[in-house]
Design a protein around this nucleic acid. Structure first.
Lengths: 340, 340
DNA sequence: TAAATAAACTAAAACGATTTCGATAACAAA
DNA sequence: TTTGTTATCGAAATCGTTTTAGTTTATTTA
């Protein structure tokens, strides 16, 4: 059946006017008589006319689509960001095409290419772990498509960025442990080249040194941030070497939970003997026993700032050559719970 | 700057051939000489030509867009579904527009309207809690747009559906508790009108009666499935009335964790004194202590079956009047961990 | 060599809307 | 009545691509 969607042409035929008039009537142009406008609108309603958005966008050039490229969707933080951005965009009548990259550079490139083909008005991107150099982004930017990086960014790229103030947040977390009287604080850090990981490490380090404690290389180990079993294994090894550890600052909630699990296994009391602080404030962190002290990353604020920046850039057609790029920092909150 | 994207027309001008030839060359038509095809492709690459997908879709009618409407994205199960469907669709070069409804009927209607305007080729939808009657879906279906319902469906609607085999799964879970020797099994159920909630309850009931135990109304209470504190409060009230409870089957992992938390608080051993089984296999469930026994809903299989069904319906232009609708059941897995 | 066939190409319409610019009609002012 | 003004409408171009139907050129066959 497929009742062939009613078009403007069809409306025009039925009413015996031109397509131009119908279009104008529907879009509130002043040069159409009150009565004909009413007629058109009435019929449009009756026949359930919807403009073919594809055709409109095609004609108007602006597609009203933006792309959202990120490492994963099945992830507490990112899914919140996806949800928020879609919601914000829909208020502006903009649709968003979401592309997960699964931390894979090739997928990231493919995703961007797809978005270019779709003529998106702009792109929001959080880089994959594999992405070192932003060449592919620059190429696309040269096509005139505004790009804003968020969360996982590259310091090398000439775009506006929105990031969590990782360094401050980490410092805040570690200072919290210090005020709790902890003196031998371990840090479970993430990949060496990830900017978030670097900044959180730097925050840890400056909290330690600023407060007069001595920074020890040995207390910092690298863990896979989203793998609880591996994180536990690595922490176990560290803890067995350094039983004097009385505080842990972990790169993610998962790693923090891994540490707690190991400590429980060794019958060490959390928080009395060892305090633990995580990072992210995933849903999990409020469900564990003890509930986890952590840093809330404010996904919604991140989404809002990123969307707004992109939106502005689209409107003003700003591009990378015309001015300095800006980096916006999203403030975090230390959520103190039972693990510290 | 915005280097005006190169179009087919531009390529044609440069090469001194017609746009038709360029188009055919690019699309591998047979009636274009080998040498000219090579010329075209070479130049296209040089000038970074990308077809304007908007224009292509517009011309071809098929938009290569599908809509995905669901209650939330920031949710372990749904975010996995979103991710999977996007991934599956991208293999077919199809983009998906995701629309969260936040369990709100008005938002659901708006979302569907947006999708219609965009001329999507088809719609996948998981209903909001507020949705009782699928009138708005039928209206859209009458426009000739294929619709497939998944997960949260309405028994009243005449569409293909893909659902978790909730009843079987629940039965399996409760039978597991019974084989563990449990005799007084409580059920924390969800909303009275939610189909999932109903089916899980029915599964619980039939496991009880089929195994010769007596079904007691009193042991079934309603909880807010995603609110841990409220769930705990309700369970606490029940447990204080019925200290003989030795097993709990909860509608979600969150509610199950709530029960465990309350039991811990009362120094009841899990699983020895009371065993607990959840539902969903969220990431959380493997991170709690004790690790939670639960039902894995197989989000990926759900996504795959839903996408495939929609895809088939789009291809065959099947619609609701032409045949009987089908309901596909996604099998679940009982994940036995430490809480039972 | 002429006719028939095959190969390579192109003109033009079409998709559904917007928008410019000119045409017509209606009315007022002179 | 003529001119000027304003209100209302419509023809046609346009966006970038695909595709049909036809045209031209080259090649084969008789």
């Amino acid at each position: 059946m497929s009742l062939k969607k009613t078009s403007i042409k069809y409306l025009a035929n039925v009413l015996g006017v031109s397509v131009a008039t119908v279009s104008k009537a529907l879009n509130g142009y002043p040069d159409v008589k009150r009565s004909t406008r009413d007629k058109v609108i009435k019929l449009a309603k009756e026949l359930q006319y919807f403009p073919n958005q594809q055709a409109v966008n095609f004609r108007k050039k602006s597609t009203k689509f933006i792309g959202l490229v990120l490492p994963q969707i099945n992830h507490f933080y990112f899914s919140k960001i996806v949800e928020s951005i879609i919601e914000l965009a829909s208020e502006d009548n903009i649709s968003v095409i979401v592309k997960p990259t699964f931390e894979n550079l090739e997928k990231e490139k493919m995703a961007l290419l797809d978005l270019v083909k779709l003529n998106v008005d702009g792109i929001l991107i959080s880089l994959s772990d594999e992405t070192r150099f932003p060449d592919h982004l620059i190429e696309i930017s040269n096509l005139g498509i505004p790009i804003v990086e968020f969360d996982k960014i590259s310091k090398l790229s000439p775009f506006d960025k929105v990031v969590t103030s990782d360094r401050d947040a980490a410092k805040k977390a570690v200072e919290h442990l210090i005020t709790r009287g902890k003196k031998t604080i371990a840090h479970l850090r993430g990949p060496l080249l990830s900017q978030n990981s670097i900044d959180r490490f730097l925050g840890y380090k400056s909290a330690i040194t600023d407060s007069g404690l001595t920074f020890e290389e040995e207390l910092v180990i690298q863990v896979p941030p989203n793998n609880i079993n591996e994180s536990q294994r690595f922490f176990s090894r560290l803890f067995n070497k350094r039983k004097d550890i009385d505080g842990v600052f972990a790169i993610t909630d998962i790693s923090a939970i891994a540490a707690i699990r190991e400590l429980k296994l060794q019958s060490i009391d959390v928080p009395d003997q060892v305090s633990v602080v995580g990072f992210s404030n995933w849903q999990i962190s409020s469900l564990t026993t003890p509930r986890l002290t952590t840093i809330d990353q404010n996904a919604f604020e991140m989404a809002k700032a990123s969307y707004k920046k992109l939106s502005d850039n689209i409107k003003t057609k700003n591009n990378i050559t015309s001015r300095e790029q800006e980096t916006i920092f999203i403030k975090t909150d230390l959520i103190i719970r039972e693990s510290s």
